[in-house]
Every structure is written in structure tokens, then in C-alpha cells.
């Protein structure tokens, strides 16, 4: 039996706010297999984004262990964790988080600056990633010159350009209209289906969650039911045509 890609054991995370200690994640245990497409659902404050941040190495758990493949994140120093993120994880954020002064291609090229690559190779890879998300003709546009859907596709291109094992998406369709959201979901489905990327998506939107193979429900810092289902096939064309 193969080992899960993501292994969480007894993970607890608390925050202090106004002198009070809030337990956001409480003794959480969860396994996620490689190649899966997971949606984390739950009400606000249920700990979805916190869990995503912990799995992505953006934050640290108070107790417990988080293993991604062979890597134990709790054992890594800040520098090691940054280096691990650069090669193992691609992030897609709700607010896109593109650097406004850079063009689409320059934004996608950013993570490659950490790899020992020549400028021409970086450029080639960035252009290829943008082609994959259907933005070959928008490479030299700045984020302010793109629509929300296009910005999120640039962010996806940036997330996949280093060919990471894991893609973490925090409300990737939260700021998008229906048609753009479907395009983004279609793209995430493709990354999972064709490129075999493991995807973990936090979402409020049941319609978006239906595109995942597994839906993990969270509530008050703990796990609820876990549904494994046949994913819905998003259809941007269908929405746009209505």
C-alpha cells in the first residue's frame, strides 16, 4: 500500500486575539493521496485556510506533524521551508496576488529565479505555462490590463511553472464571475487529470467543490464527513453561452 502524499497527525493551531486563545485546528488527523483532487469546505472560521497554510508551509502548527511525501515540515527551518515551497508547492490565491509592476510572463517567471536556469530557459518555461492556461497572447500584459479570470489563470501558470507535486488553491474562484470561475475550475481539473497534480482547494462554493474528487468538510477546527464522488466537469463554454 502506497504512503499518502499528505499526512496530518494531531495537528493543533491556536491564535491569540485580544488576550483570548482561539483554537483554529484541534488535534486534526488526515491523509490525502497523491494525484487526488480535494476540496476543503466549511463555514468561515472552520480552519480551512489555516489548514491550507500549514500544508503549504506558510505557517507552522503548534503541535502535531505534517508530512508531505518524505518531508516533515515541523522539522524544517525557515530557510529550508522556503526552499521546499519553491520546489514542491504551487499556490493559487483568491486575490490572485500577482506582482502589479510585472507583466504576466515576468510574474510566471518569478519562481524560476530560484532554480538554476538560464534566462532563455526561464522565459521558455514561463511562455509554455502561459500557453497551457490559454494566455499566450497576454504575456506582455500587466495584471491591471487583464480581467479577473485572466489574472487567476496567470496565477495558475505561476503555480505550475516549477512543476510542483502539490497545488494549493485558496478560494480560487472567490473573486470571479461564473464564466471565469468555470474556466479556472476547468483548468484545475486538467492539471489534476492530465498533469497528475495533487490539488487541494479551499472553497465556500459547493458548485466549485463539486469539481473535486474528494470533498472534506470542516467545522470548528475539526473534520466533518469526507465525500468521495464523481467530479463535475466544469463548462466555461456552457456558462458563457447562457
Amino acid at each position: 500500500m502506497s504512503q499518502p502524499l499528505i499526512q496530518l497527525r494531531n495537528v493543533t493551531k491556536t491564535y491569540s486575539r485580544g488576550g483570548e486563545t482561539l483554537t483554529v485546528l484541534d488535534d486534526l488527523a488526515l491523509d490525502m493521496d497523491a494525484g487526488g483532487y480535494f476540496a476543503l469546505m466549511g463555514p468561515s472560521g472552520s480552519g480551512k485556510t489555516t489548514l491550507l497554510n500549514l500544508i503549504g508551509g506558510l505557517d507552522r502548527a503548534d503541535t502535531g506533524s505534517i508530512r508531505i511525501g518524505e518531508d516533515d515540515l515541523a522539522q524544517m527551518g525557515t530557510g529550508e521551508l522556503a526552499e521546499w515551497r519553491s520546489r514542491s508547492v504551487g499556490f493559487v490565491f483568491q486575490g490572485f496576488n500577482l506582482i502589479p509592476v510585472l507583466t504576466a510572463r515576468e510574474n510566471v517567471e518569478l519562481p524560476l529565479l530560484l532554480a538554476p536556469l538560464k534566462g532563455s530557459e526561464r522565459k521558455k518555461r514561463a511562455e509554455y505555462a502561459l500557453q497551457l492556461v490559454g494566455l499566450a497572447d497576454r504575456m506582455n500584459h500587466r495584471p491591471s490590463q487583464l480581467s479577473g479570470g485572466q489574472e487567476q489563470r496567470v496565477a495558475i501558470a505561476r503555480a505550475i511553472v516549477t512543476d510542483p507535486t502539490l497545488i494549493l488553491a485558496d478560494e480560487p474562484t472567490g473573486d470571479l464571475d461564473r464564466a471565469s470561475a468555470e474556466q479556472v475550475l476547468e483548468l484545475l481539473g486538467k492539471l489534476n487529470g492530465e498533469l497528475k497534480k495533487t490539488i487541494l482547494m479551499v472553497t465556500h462554493d459547493p458548485h466549485a467543490a463539486e469539481c473535486a474528487k474528494t470533498i472534506v468538510h470542516m467545522d470548528k477546527g475539526g473534520l466533518g464527513r469526507i465525500e468521495t464522488r464523481e467530479p463535475r466537469k466544469p463548462s466555461a463554454a456552457g456558462v458563457a453561452g447562457r
Binding site: G56, L58, T78, G79, A82, E83, W84, R85, S86, R87, F91, N97, L98, I99, P100, L110, P111, L114, R158
Partner: peptide, 15 residues
């Protein structure tokens, strides 16, 4: 500030 956060999330070190 946000750009700094993005860079760090992408794997750029504190240094």
C-alpha cells in the same frame, strides 16, 4: 508588503 508575502510564498528566503 503584499509583494513581499508573494515572494516568500513562492520560496524566496528572508535574506
Amino acid at each position: 508588503t503584499r509583494d513581499v508575502g508573494v515572494l516568500k510564498a513562492l520560496g524566496f528566503s528572508d535574506g
